[in-house]
């Protein structure tokens, strides 16, 4: 067995991990908020709102994340809009995954049986109250598993941010590899493990949430 200098790996990877987690958490929040907003617009009773939100979904879902990143970080400054690196990453990732998330929200809302909305109307709930107290809580349960998947995708997606020179986990691993070329498999093994732990964390959280939300219902 080779002598692997593990202790030389950790500090750099730790720095990278912090960036990855920071960007992942912030873009996840952005994506969730966007999902909800666009998703609700997708089921609006106003046709214009529905159409505009659908265009948003199609555009930001259709663009490759990398192209979106380049646009936000390299192209927007020419139009007078300048973000720092982290913000650029959060905007691009938030838009891209938010667009996918809006589809999840929309279909989960539509999947709540019509009878629920009618019962709420018979009790004289306002349209807003129907959404808040009756539809969304039931839709939330259906959203959880696909949102779990989306968040795992998002974490993996953050590995692209080193293209706009953010020193995330992947970036640091590439640096390390330059310094310890013969250790390449070990470095990448470690990288793999860390991403795996991150996504497992999301899976477990989602499963716990699901159990909590479903309590008593089934």
């Amino acid at each position: 067995m080779m002598d692997v200098p593990w202790n030389d790996f950790y500090p750099l990877l730790w720095e990278g991990l912090k960036v990855t987690v920071e960007v992942a958490v912030l873009s996840a929040l952005a994506a969730l908020v966007l999902s909800l907003v666009i998703g609700l617009c997708r089921v609006s009773k106003f046709k214009t709102v529905r159409i505009i939100s659908q265009i948003c979904t199609e555009v930001f879902r259709g663009l490759p994340l990398l192209v979106l990143l380049f646009w936000v970080y390299f192209a927007l400054p020419f139009l007078g809009v300048e973000f720092d690196k982290v913000t650029s990453a959060v905007v691009a990732i938030g838009l891209n995954y938010g667009a996918f998330g809006s589809e999840i929200v929309r279909s989960a809302i539509l999947a709540v049986p019509n009878g629920q909305s009618e019962a709420a109307r018979a009790l004289n709930f306002s349209p807003l109250q129907r959404m808040i107290y009756i539809i969304l809580p039931q839709a939330a349960l259906r959203m959880l598993p696909p949102f779990g998947n989306l968040m795992i995708e998002l974490i993996k997606g953050t590995s692209l941010i080193y293209f706009i020179t953010l020193s995330d986990l992947t970036y640091q691993a590439l640096i390390l590899r330059n310094n310890f070329l013969s250790m390449t498999p070990y470095i990448f093994l470690l990288l793999l493990l860390i991403y795996f732990v991150l996504s497992s964390f999301v899976s477990v959280t989602v499963r716990l949430l699901e159990r909590k939300l479903a309590a008593g219902r089934l």
């Binding site: 049986p113 009878g115 629920q116 009618e118 019962a119 709420a120 109307r121 018979a122 009790l123 004289n124 009756i134 809580p137 039931q138 349960l141 219902r217």
Partner: peptide, 16 residues
């Protein structure tokens, strides 16, 4: 609607 109520064939209770 405040004057009117309805009970449905399939109950439509709020499951949550």
């Amino acid at each position: 609607r405040g004057n009117i109520g309805m009970v449905f064939q399939h109950f439509n209770l709020f499951p949550h």
